[in-house]
Amino acid sequence: MAWTARLKGLRAGAERRFPVLAELAARLLSANLLDAATRLAAQAFLACVPLLFAIAAFAPRGVRDQLSDSLRSLFGLTGPAEQQVQQVLTPSADGSLKDTTGIIGLAIVLISATSFSRAMSRVCERAWRLPKAGARIAAWRWVVWLLALVVVVLVQGPVREGFGVGLWLGTPLVFLVGIGVWLWTQHLLLAGRVGWLPLLPGALLTSAALTALSLTARLYMPGALNRSLAEYGSLGLVLVLLSWLIVVSAAITFAVTIGAVLAQEPSLRRHPTTRARPGARKP
């Protein structure tokens, strides 16, 4: 029993000396972050597929071409994988896809896709240990965030290429844009209950993680997608994309949570962190 007591003493000493690390370990172990990341990835996939078909049916050709270029730049698409994307984004000449989808179908797609926004909201709320915001306050934020995310994906191509200069400029631009996106994302989906400054560590960590993953995606994804298409057909494409989304979602979930813990350091506690909002309710 002596060694057990010694271990407890070492743990207590570590918690006194490094309270941030102790709190971070406790938060990461108690929040089921891997489960949250898996759910976030599943909702992202379920939102992206119908949105892709909706854009193919209703968006002008310039928007479809821009989306194709951005996806090619994001994943380094080549060969069969690129052809699959082009096939989805090129609607039939007779407009049958638009007739099948319809305005009502487009509205249903948009509403169902907000499940991704809701999952992202839950990730942010769990990171900050906040209750769920009331639906009346949060609903419009889910739609706005989803539409803004589509715009961010659309501009990924030129940003990643440094507007024609190259990756040496594009990579820092992606990082800087990511900071702004994830700072705004947290503030919006938390319904303004956390001040801007405390959200900065999470935005920095998330942007850094996603920038690093975007660089590896250009190296890994083209070969993985084309091999899966050759061996398993479209199902292989789904499996690879879902696996990648799980990695990305895990990076987002952990980065936002770590950022929330770091933001509650004593040096930042003098700044306003959370504010009560009407309509918030207990989870």
Score class of each variant (00 low, 15 high):
Ala36Ile: 07
Trp196Tyr: 15
Ala5Gly: 13
Pro50His: 09
Val153His: 09
Ala208Tyr: 06
Val20Ser: 13
Leu204Glu: 02
Gly105Asp: 04
Ala127Val: 08
Leu51Val: 03
Leu215Ala: 01
Leu67Cys: 00
Gly102Asn: 01
Arg39Ile: 02
Ser207Gln: 03
Ser30Tyr: 05
Thr171His: 08
Phe75Arg: 03
Ser234Pro: 11
Thr100Arg: 13
Met120Gln: 02
Arg275Tyr: 11
Ser115Ala: 12
Leu51Asn: 03
Val247His: 05
Gln156Lys: 06
Leu146Met: 14
Ser73Leu: 06
Asp69Lys: 12
Gly13Ile: 12
Phe175Ala: 00
Leu262Arg: 01
Arg193Phe: 06
Leu225Thr: 07
Phe18Pro: 00
Val155Asn: 02
Leu147Cys: 12
Leu237Ile: 02
Pro266Arg: 12
Val150Cys: 14
Leu89Asp: 11
Ala25Asn: 13
Trp184Pro: 00
Arg129Trp: 06
Gly13Trp: 14
Lys282Asp: 15
Pro60Ala: 11
Ser243Ala: 15
Asp35Glu: 15
Ala57Arg: 00
Trp244Phe: 08
Gly157Met: 03
Val181Met: 05
Met221Trp: 04
Gly102Lys: 09
Leu235Gln: 00
Leu154Cys: 05
Ala212Phe: 04
Thr273Leu: 10
Val240Met: 08
Ala276His: 12
Leu97Lys: 10
Leu235Asp: 07
Gly233Glu: 04
Val88Gly: 04
Ile137Ala: 13
Thr114Ile: 07
Ala255Gln: 08
Arg277His: 11
Ala36Ser: 06
Ile179Lys: 11
Ile55Gln: 10
Thr101Asn: 03
Trp3Arg: 12
Ala260Asn: 04
Leu33Arg: 04
Leu229Glu: 01
Asp99Glu: 13
Leu268Asn: 04
Phe45Val: 12
Val238Gly: 07
Pro158Val: 12
Gln84Asn: 04
Ala25Asp: 14
Ala135Ser: 13
Leu40Pro: 09
Phe254Ile: 15
Arg61Met: 05
Ala37Lys: 00
Ser234Asp: 12
Ala208Cys: 00
Gly178Pro: 03
Leu74Ser: 01
Val85Cys: 01
Leu239His: 08
Ala139Cys: 00
Leu7Trp: 07
Ala263Arg: 00
Glu125His: 09
Leu262Cys: 10
Ile111Pro: 09
Leu51Ser: 10
